[in-house]
Design a protein around this nucleic acid. Sequence first.
DNA 1: TTTCAACACGAAAACGTTTTCGGTGCTCAT
DNA 2: ATGAGCACCGAAAACGTTTTCGTGTTGAAA
Lengths: 341, 341
Amino acid sequence: MKRKVTLKQIAKELDVSISTVSKSLRDSPEISEDTRQKVQAFAKLYNYKPNLIALSLKNKKTKTIGIIIPEIVHHFFATVISGIEHVANEHGYNVIVTLSDESFDKEVINMEMLANGSIDGFIMSLSKETQHKKDFHHIAEVINQGMPVVMFDRVTSDILCDKVIIDDNAAAFDAVQSLINNDFNKIALITTVDYVSVGKLRTDGYIKALRTNDRKVDESLILRIEDIDNCEEAIEKMMQEVKPDAVFAVNELFAVTAIKAANKLGQKVPEDVSVIGFTDGIISKYSSPSITTVSQNGIKMGGKAAKMLIDRLESEEEDEELYRTEVIETHLVVRESTPTL
Amino acid sequence: MKRKVTLKQIAKELDVSISTVSKSLRDSPEISEDTRQKVQAFAKLYNYKPNLIALSLKNKKTKTIGIIIPEIVHHFFATVISGIEHVANEHGYNVIVTLSDESFDKEVINMEMLANGSIDGFIMSLSKETQHKKDFHHIAEVINQGMPVVMFDRVTSDILCDKVIIDDNAAAFDAVQSLINNDFNKIALITTVDYVSVGKLRTDGYIKALRTNDRKVDESLILRIEDIDNCEEAIEKMMQEVKPDAVFAVNELFAVTAIKAANKLGQKVPEDVSVIGFTDGIISKYSSPSITTVSQNGIKMGGKAAKMLIDRLESEEEDEELYRTEVIETHLVVRESTPTL
DNA sequence: TTTCAACACGAAAACGTTTTCGGTGCTCAT
DNA sequence: ATGAGCACCGAAAACGTTTTCGTGTTGAAA
């Protein structure tokens, strides 16, 4: 077992100083051609690679991005990480991933953990609990310490920083509008509780679309799900009671569950009831019938967030206080769960 | 913007030495009650947290685990990461995630990147290309440098290290056997090309089940998919030509595609043809009909891998050379795509 | 009064780098 | 012979810790 070789060891072997070795490897003009080649040959032979931890300490830069997301077993977040990882990699950065499990405490702990030197900046999406408590002191603190933060998707206006989002409101509006255009009358909404920021925005978009078209908003057509893991019953009940001719769901899980409920009630999709989902993931694509969704490009979102963070990290110091919010465009992917809209 | 405070700064403020501050904060008995309280109060006030990079350098331990997987936008791998992250967190470790994108070169680059001090050990699953090339020198090298590696799912016997796998062969055997027990006669197999280790093992399990029951293996019933993104045609063609009464697919994507193909050909699932998939993911659960699958508990797999790695990291040095291979049990999750088996 | 332990603290090394600032020793022009 | 200038290299600081080893000051025992 040959352990990693250090500058000191090379210096000792070659009977020169550490400085000489370091300079030789970095092709400094201070070093003679002879010694440089000698050192470089030796280093190559022993497969010398500088210790990144030592470099991090010296440079006060880790070339690492910290990610904090609610969960990873979730197609959208996985795509975002993928997007982040790829552009991070292109720029020589690594990513360290932590999960909040939708818990405020875990979000805080993870943040403090990473803030102590391990990373150069954060990319994060708020946990449900954090959004509910509206307590963002941990984020304000790291920003105040000079560490850049980029928030995506689940953001808050209480914190000033770079953000990348989709226009949830407009996207929902467009989706519902297209249903209205196709003469659907009883358009149900399956959404989350209001403290989930994106859920609220999509709900607002739904309402706005109805109002814009002089439709009245029927609360019995709106179902707010608290516990996403046990939504079948509630959805089935709603479908049965109000018999909508179209359903707009704020995520694909609600959408596919609505379809299953419809089937159970003997209704065919899209013949008897049309369904539009949100977030273009695996389920929508492979469900039968496949589901028309508002696509939400996680790869692009993650890539954009990473780019913004790296730009800020590498800009010549503190030209800031002009935070930007990037909006990723969405579009409707029409599939089998609706007529061709 | 108040920057992070260091021991040196505290020492200066309080007019004591750095050592005194460090010892005070670690409750060393060498320090008087007075100074200790003074220092601790000051540290708390300024929210002192030790710099983890400095600690890493000193201790030669980063408390970080490196993960290398083929891709993250893949339910199984996401669950594994989730499993790893949770037990890592419980033990005070962070995880840094890199993606090989199924490329040998990226796998090597990422590995070398992380091997230079950033992490204490690896958890990885081989890329397709690596499995194809059978070139594992990069892995042998880091192990040789004393860095522990745990491989999961896509492993190789060419490398000696801890491994976590499922018994792909037995799981496939059992699945096919249960089809045979229910009097299915034309059982088709949709699998990957043979150099993907798990695909090969599952294929072997299928063949073994047939042979054990004195059925002959009909090559026309076996479809080997090269390009997973364009498998619809091939699957549809096979379904049409051989008209199987049951299909065993080595992943859930093939399974759901088979169902779609069947529907397209006017065959009902499970009435006309039964389908069993592999990997219990989102698709199987929410597809209509939902798909009977061989469950592969990624969370447990990741957790086990993390535990093995941490155990090795924290065992009192080098009692090793007795590498273990853990087998995660599987079971058949019966859903709507088969009769109750 | 001397001696010695106990106590409280500081100096310095170490982890592995990079970089600044000085040195040498040489050549060459004066 | 003297000095300037150059080519080459090393010492040391710095990043932020922890830890070993000293060292000075007490107080009490001899």
